[in-house]
Amino acid sequence: MTTPSHIGTEEKLVRMANQIAGFFATQPKASQAEETAAHIRAFWDPRMRAQLSKLLATDANGLSPLARAAAEHLEQSEQV
């Protein structure tokens, strides 16, 4: 009927990760990346986490520094 107007899923994941990081960036310094990663781990289904992990390979992925740190943290913990 009409073409989808929404942005792509990857772009959306980046936005979501940045939003989550945006909240935890306001929380106590010590554990911001861990908390962001834990939130994503608790609420995102595996295919979304895998997509996020894949995004880490590209440089201009749009992830904020904290979201990137969280994604890296998440990737390491998932590999364990």
Partner: peptide, 18 residues
């Protein structure tokens, strides 16, 4: 043991074909 998709995520995954 893995969390599933929320409604908006389901729709995204549908558009992605998974």
């Amino acid at each position: 043991p893995e969390p599933g998709l929320r409604i908006p995520n389901m729709l995204d995954a549908a558009v992605d074909g998974t």
